[in-house]
Write a protein that binds this DNA or RNA. Structure first.
Lengths: 235, 235
DNA sequence: GTACTATAGGTCATCTTGACTATAAGTACG
DNA sequence: CGTACTTATAGTCAAGATGACCTATAGTAC
């Protein structure tokens, strides 16, 4: 896009805009985040959040969806993707003024091990294993704020289901909460909560066939976006 | 700041970054937002949110505080200022690619009628009187999302006090909730809630001297940032 | 059959909430 | 002074939500 305004052009020089993604999933009963290894300076060899430049004529949301698809192969329409925050401290990129818009993505467990069309080495890392001091740019701060956002979102919204592949059991959903929040929940009280919330879960009539234990009823995501009453961490 | 990286420079051309402010206050028992009249194209003569370009070497938060000070004369440290979201749709500014980072500010009722160092005509407009179709750029969307954010923040945080000048009574605080949410609250139940929350209010020992009615005990803001249990709208 | 495991459903005391009533502390006015 | 009026503060009570349990159910392994 061409800048046609003189006053604007004066301010437009030397600013780049990127989108960075915090992609969470649950694998092996642990919350994991997708990190890439930087193949060039700056921060060569360090870990970073996947991301890229906003293209001409592309919305920020569209950039985020494209990046997510490039990294995970997932179709962005079926999963949770929300803008987190913009980060633009002048010193955050040594190459110049780069403002990044961070997005939070919650995806179900991917069977394929994240090949991606991109050549960069991407890998899932358990959040508790991430060395925050070894993250490039200001990605430690972004990851920390994304983690708190995800934990908070589970309280008031139904997005925990974004981690699950349909159909899922109530225990599957409870394990999402336990893994993201980091402490166990009472199975019975949890069931009462989520089945009591309107339009949260839709019973499919199907049952799971586990190797051990009683089969569980299976559900699909309901239409509700907000969870009322909320399911709070503390109290 | 000079762009020293070739790949970066290729993406950095033609993008401008601004900060726009949604500044709310309560005047005459109504929620009001500060709007400026545009003195030049595009959107000449229409209303817009106050805002401006991010300067070299300036953080986004700093830009927001500077703009807020220019518009209201208020010292940004004493009041509530939080980042809302970035807006970057390619068509949002006809002059070219402009990404804006919107901030939400909640300020107490200003006695001085917003002169500001800026020459633009700034004025407080009751939110219910705003003609959303007559707002420049995508500011209608930004204002709508800011309004919902403010309403939601009152549920889970203590920021309602940002609208009050200290010391304030519990009724002052209640009126904030009623004005922002748009419906009345039971005075007795409201009192029970806010006095029950830890570190929300600090009693000063002072009492108000109203022209009519019983004097009210006066309070200052406590140290709590989060309100627990929350004070929900619905239910 | 019994042991084991995880799901599903129920109990109950405690806490929270919403609606409502009652009292208190000031002013205005006669 | 006393009554009306206004707002603040306090208390009551039933209904609902919550946390900590306990019990039953439906499968597998042996």
């Amino acid at each position: 896009m061409v800048i046609r305004d003189v006053a604007l052009a004066r301010h437009a020089t030397g600013v780049a805009v990127t989108v960075d993604l915090v992609i969470f999933t649950i694998r092996d009963d642990r919350l994991q985040v997708l990190l890439v290894e930087r193949g060039k300076q700056p921060f060569l060899g360090m870990s970073a959040l996947p991301g890229g430049y906003v293209r001409d004529g592309e919305t920020l949301d569209r950039t985020a969806m494209r990046e997510l698809n490039e990294e995970t192969g997932l179709d962005g329409r079926r999963l949770h993707l929300e803008q987190l925050k913009a980060y633009g401290d002048p010193g955050r990129d040594p190459r110049g003024r780069v403002i990044t818009v961070a997005y939070l993505a919650l995806v179900p467990n991917l069977s394929a091990p994240v090949a991606g069309t991109d050549a960069r080495a991407a890998r899932w890392v358990p959040v508790e294993s991430v060395d925050f001091d070894e993250l490039a740019f200001d990605h430690a701060m972004i990851l920390r704020e994304a983690l708190e956002r995800a934990r908070s979102r589970l309280e008031y919204t139904t997005i925990a289901t974004a981690f699950c592949t349909e159909p899922f059991s109530i225990s599957d959903l409870r394990r999402v909460y336990e893994v993201v929040w980091g402490f166990p929940l009472d199975p019975s009280n949890f069931r009462r909560k989520v089945t009591g919330a309107e339009h949260f879960l839709i019973a499919t009539g199907q049952r799971s066939t586990p190797e051990i234990g009683r089969p569980a009823a299976l559900y699909r995501r309901g239409s509700a976006q907000l969870l009322f009453p909320p399911l709070m961490r503390s109290g």
